[in-house]
């Protein structure tokens, strides 16, 4: 099968999922007992004012018609207006995407760089000391609350040791911001060659990224180990051993066969850790998409919540699609599926 055909078929499969997701986010604020009209109109509004607002929001129409309007708006990129910022939700979010991606990618990337070798090493000697230690570490990472870890880091590295800047924002208050290119201070300062800004941005990144990496590493260790053990006990690897291939060759074979499933898992982690990243942003006042979404949830800004949840779902689908394509390109067997 050619890549284009695979691509088209895969896109076709996404469409019903997209419709479902849009319906889900549409229902999200309608199943609740919340009345957006009441929120907008305020306590002193008269019945007529209520009706006007209701008509403006299209809430006087039947549910399916409302859904039609909603889909139409979403397709045009109109996710409504946030009443917190009084700006279009989509604009609010697009501004913040690079800010969050910076945290997420560094965090999951470092988590994978730490977690994958640990998981592999544990798998090559199951039930050894290393395996037990890594298992405990992984369980610990599963159990530690993200936000609490962030707070403890701040206490130790900011309050006690004064090594890290306070957990407010992405760059020092006295440092001038580099001209915007990518939207992340680290990259932008690098592009501008502004070392002061670069150092400040980096020092602000370290703590939150460490938190995300610790939390990302836990499931990566667990799954890498499980995947590698499964590969090791597969017919193919057992046959390779029966053929007297050198240990190194067998190991390389295990690594190659584990690569695809591990890669797939890290990809799904990227989407799963959006929640973790949001909490870290909240603690470090990072000002990205995650903090925006949490604030919207906390303050009952439901247009923004709706847009945010929809956005995350689309992000997940996007990541899953990319994984599928990468797997298709590196796996000789992919055409079987």
């Amino acid at each position: 099968m050619t890549f284009t055909r695979f691509f088209l078929r895969r896109m076709m499969m996404v469409i019903p999922l997209l419709v479902g997701i849009v319906f889900g986010t549409f229902m999200l604020i309608r199943v609740g007992g919340l009345d957006p009209v009441g929120l907008l109109a305020g306590p002193t509004a008269t019945a007529e004012e209520f009706d006007i607002i209701r008509a403006e929001l299209g809430l006087d129409q039947p549910l399916w018609a409302q859904f039609g309007i909603y889909i139409g708006n979403v397709l045009q990129g109109d996710l409504g207006e946030s009443w917190l910022s009084t700006r279009p939700v989509l604009d609010d979010m697009l501004d913040r995407v690079p800010v969050t991606l910076e945290l997420l990618l560094w965090g999951v990337g470092i988590g994978a760089i730490i977690g994958i070798p640990i998981g592999l090493k544990a798998a090559f000697k199951p039930d050894g000391t290393f395996d037990h230690v890594s298992r405990f570490f992984s369980l610990f990472g599963f159990s530690i609350p993200t936000y609490w870890l962030g707070l403890m880091m701040l206490f130790v590295f900011f309050y006690l040791l004064r090594w890290a800047p306070p957990g407010i924002g992405r760059i020092g208050l006295m440092v001038s911001q580099p001209p915007e290119v990518t939207g992340t201070y680290l990259m932008d300062s690098l592009i501008a060659g502004d070392w002061t800004a670069f150092r400040s941005a980096l020092s602000h990144l370290i703590l939150p990224v460490t938190c995300i990496a610790v939390i990302a590493a836990a499931p990566i260790i667990k799954h890498t180990r499980a995947i590698a053990i499964e590969v090791i006990s597969s017919d193919a690897v057992r046959y390779a051993k029966a053929s007297g291939l050198p240990t190194l060759t067998v190991r390389r074979m295990v690594l190659r066969n584990a690569a695809t499933p591990v890669l797939t898992f890290v990809g799904t982690e990227l989407t799963g850790l959006v929640g973790t990243t949001s909490l870290i942003e909240y603690v470090f006042a990072w000002g990205g998409l995650g903090q925006y979404g949490l604030n919207a949830i906390i303050n009952g800004d439901f247009t923004a919540v709706q847009g945010y949840v929809l956005f995350l779902a689309l992000f997940s689908i996007f990541v899953f699609l990319i994984i599928d394509f990468v797997v298709f390109l590196i796996e000789p067997r992919a055409e079987l599926q």
């Binding site: 799963g272 959006v274 929640g275 949001s278 909490l279 945010y308 995350l312 779902a313």
Partner: peptide, 8 residues
């Protein structure tokens, strides 16, 4: 599964 569980 496309929604992060915490956010959902």
């Amino acid at each position: 599964r496309v929604f992060p569980s915490i956010i959902l």
